[in-house]
Amino acid sequence: MARISASVYTSHVPAIGAAVDQGKTGEPYWQKVFAGYEFSKAWMREHTPDVIFLVYNDHATAFSLELIPTFAIGCAAQFQPADEGWGPRPVPVVEGHPELAAHIAQSVIQDDFDLTIVNKMDVDHGLTVPLSLMFGQPEAWPCPVIPFAVNVVQYPVPSGRRCFNLGRALRKAVESYDAPLNVQIWGTGGMSHQLQGPRAGLINRKFDHAFLDRLIADPAGLSQVPHIDYVREAGSEGIELVMWLIARGAMSDSPPKVAHRFYHVPASNTAVGHLILENQ
């Protein structure tokens, strides 16, 4: 049987990807960000899974306003890095895992979560920046990745509670897959940031640290936090943090081992948060 061994949480700021691609990671501004991922890259080498289920959001790249799926699961064999207007990132093609993705779709839809099945999709920085942070710049990504896109662009976005419960359904789906796969689930986006209007540049360290604390120790309680608290306290784009609850919901009910925790302000407009939690 397949199992979820660990979860990884990280911001996916596009400027981080640009810093990697342009060889700026050693500059003092960026060094402070990448230092927080040194441990993570070593950990990834020791804990490379068979598949990563990567929860992220599309930023008006694959999905325009023509079609806005709340939850979209990538079932294709491959996903190309998207051209977001600055040219595609020079990163490897993302290899999918169509068999596991189809199994998860079948299971989770029967559990009352209406996933949109996507068989053709380019993936933007929301998916590729976390891979760069955790793997650096390999010739090919070391394992297949199932992209799972969540709408956090047009309101209403899914609630934290729904995301957390979806995570639980994902756990059940993975555990019913009839092959001994080691699966990691990643939740990305956040932390506090606002990219629009006169309040742009908002950062709330206190909110972010409390979110990290509760994500570790009280995820069910955290999942009850309403949208308005994210938007008011963590900025209009801070709402991306609901995606971390999907990954957390997929973890075991018993307390996880905190393998790594990191927080830094800023990367461009954003507070960078990062956690690695292992199932024990």
């Binding site: 047009q154 309101y155 209403p156 629009q196 742009a200």
Partner: peptide, 17 residues
């Protein structure tokens, strides 16, 4: 729409979309 009283912020909801 409880988010109307947040300063300097426009929530991109179905109406704005």
């Amino acid at each position: 729409k409880p988010y109307k009283d947040i300063p300097g912020t426009t929530i991109f909801d179905a109406e704005q979309s």
